[in-house]
Simulated scan of single mutants.
Amino acid sequence: MTEQESPTNEAIERLAGELHERGRALNHLLAQGPPGLTEPATAYTVLANLTQTSFRLAQTAEQIDAFLTRELDAGRLGHDRGDDPVQAVTAVHNALGQVTEQAADLGESFRRAASALAPIRAQDGGGELSPGRRTVVNLVEREDAQVGPASKDFPRTINEVLPGPAVAEDLPPELRSPPQPPHPRRGR
C-alpha cells in the first residue's frame, strides 16, 4: 500500500494475503539450498526480520481486538443468528490475547536464535577464514603494520568507557519488551 493510497478494507485484505504469499515464497527459497541461502549473515538477517514480523503480528492482533471492542461498544456489530454479539466478540478477544502472547513469545524466540547466530560466520572450503577476515589477519601479521598494544591508545578499562545500562527510552523498538496481551474480558 502506498502512502497516497487510503487504507480500505480491500487494501488491508490484500496486504494480509501478500504477507502469507511472501512467507510461502521465503520458505520455498530456503528449502532450495545453494545457490539460495549460503551465508550465516543472511540467516541472521532472516531471523531478525522474523523477530520483527512476530512482534508486528502481536500488534496486529491487538489492533483487531481494539477495532472489535470499539465497534461492539458503539453498537455496530450484529450476529448472523440474531444472538447478542458480546459472547462471540469476547471469545475473539480471548483468542487474540493468546495470539498476542504467542506471537510475542515467537518473536522473543527468533530474537534469541538471531543473537546466538550473531558470532557465526562462513568459512572457505578448507576451514580457512573468509576473504574479509583473511585481509585483517594479513594486515596484523605484516611487519610494517605498526600494531601495538591497545592499552597504549586506550588507557581506560572497558567499564570506564562504556555507558551504564540503557534506559528503556534509549533502546530502539526492536530491543524493547514485546507488546503485552490485552486483559481477557469476562463478559459485559
Rank of each mutant, 00 (worst) to 15 (best):
T42F: 06
A61E: 00
A91Q: 09
Q87S: 14
E62M: 15
P119G: 08
L117N: 02
G97P: 06
E108Y: 07
A41K: 15
Q59W: 08
F55C: 00
A116M: 10
A118I: 03
Q87H: 13
V86P: 00
T135P: 00
Y44R: 15
N94S: 13
S115W: 04
D124L: 14
P119N: 12
L77I: 14
S54N: 08
R76G: 09
A43Q: 05
T38H: 10
A103P: 00
D124K: 14
P119F: 08
P131S: 12
L96Y: 02
A114D: 02
R81M: 14
V137R: 15
V89P: 00
T38F: 09
G127N: 06
G75Q: 13
L77H: 02
A43I: 07
R81S: 13
S115M: 11
A58L: 03
R121S: 07
F55P: 00
A66L: 06
V86K: 03
L47T: 02
I120W: 04
L47V: 09
V86M: 06
P85E: 14
T135K: 06
T51M: 11
Q63M: 10
V92F: 04
G127Q: 07
V137L: 15
D84F: 07
R134M: 15
A122W: 06
G82Q: 09
A122E: 13
L106N: 03
E71N: 09
Y44T: 04
N49S: 11
T53L: 12
R112F: 06
P131Q: 10
A66C: 03
R76A: 15
G132D: 15
L47A: 14
T100L: 00
T90V: 13
A114E: 04
R133N: 10
G126F: 08
F110I: 02
R81A: 14
D84E: 09
F110R: 07
A88P: 01
R70H: 11
V86N: 03
A118M: 09
A118D: 09
P85R: 12
R133K: 09
D83R: 12
T42D: 14
G107L: 01
G127M: 07
L50A: 11
T135N: 07
Y44M: 11
L129E: 05
V46Y: 02
L68Q: 08
H79N: 13
G126H: 09
R133P: 03
S130R: 14
A114Y: 05
T60C: 05
A122T: 08
Q87R: 13
V136H: 13
Q59V: 05
Q52L: 15
P131T: 10
V89G: 00
F110A: 03
D124Y: 05
T45P: 00
V92E: 00
R111M: 03
D80R: 13
P119T: 06
L72S: 05
A114N: 06
A88H: 04
V136Q: 15
R134I: 07
A103S: 08
F110T: 01
T53H: 05
A88N: 02
V86T: 10
F55I: 02
G97I: 03
